[in-house]
Design a protein around this nucleic acid. Structure first.
Length: 203
DNA sequence: TCTTCGATTGTCT
DNA sequence: GACAATCGAAGAA
């Protein structure tokens, strides 16, 4: 576990749907006080440009969605429902708004840290939703815009496992009923089960 | 196991 | 002034 490979800038420059699929199995890492908290990404969603009516950039560039217009490889963190933070990986070239929402992970390192932040909740439910994941990893406004391609900001993604096509589920995205067709139905959500990842890790 | 519903505030119209 | 890329508790079955 000593020196893991970081996902490089080019990874985030591929089409956002490709990136969303390829992020499954990668390791999301948070560094806090030199301590590693990490997990394997299990669920993602792609948001692709101003034409995507489910994307925050559908009405153009605003103060809130500004980070989506950065070059791929940065974090886009936003606040919603009056109480929840969401973590996205910005993808694509500069000035093109696209991002992958990270919706779930299988915790592997820093379990004590996560247990404290998710006190009173069953371990299986610690990181199985986008706001649960940010709560577990202590990701908030401060992380908006951090560079995921370096370790200096304490939030980055390392190469994890290969996830074969046959164990990936593709479904429509969650919570975007307002967006209309074809956007509500596009299979831009990618999921792999925690059990499948566990067995591939022999844990 | 499933469904319903209240919480809570930044952002945009 | 409306509503959101959600969560978790509570109640029904």
């Amino acid at each position: 576990m000593a020196s893991q490979t970081l996902l490089k800038r080019e990874f985030y420059l591929q089409p956002v749907q490709e990136a969303a699929r390829a992020l499954l199995g990668q390791r999301l890492v948070r560094l806090i006080g030199g301590k590693r908290i990490s997990g394997i990404i299990l669920e993602t969603e792609a948001y692709d440009g101003e034409s995507d009516q489910a994307c925050h950039a559908r009405s153009g560039r605003t103060a809130r969605n500004d980070m989506m217009y950065a070059q791929g490889g940065r974090a886009y963190v936003y606040f919603t429902y009056g109480m929840h933070w969401m973590l996205n990986c910005v993808c694509g070239p500069a000035d093109y708004p696209a991002a992958v929402l990270l919706r779930a992970m299988l915790p592997l390192e820093g379990l004590d840290f996560i247990a404290e932040r998710r006190a009173g909740i069953a371990e299986k439910l610690w990181c199985d939703g986008p706001a649960k994941l940010t709560k577990a990893l202590a990701i908030e406004r401060e992380q908006n815009g951090v560079d995921l391609c370096g370790r200096q900001d304490g939030l980055f993604i390392e190469q994890g496992l290969e996830i074969p096509e046959e164990i990936i589920q593709r479904t429509p995205r969650i919570g975007i009923q307002y967006s209309g067709e074809p956007w509500v139905s596009l299979p831009w959500r990618f999921v792999v089960s925690a059990e499948a990842v566990r067995s591939r890790l022999n844990i």
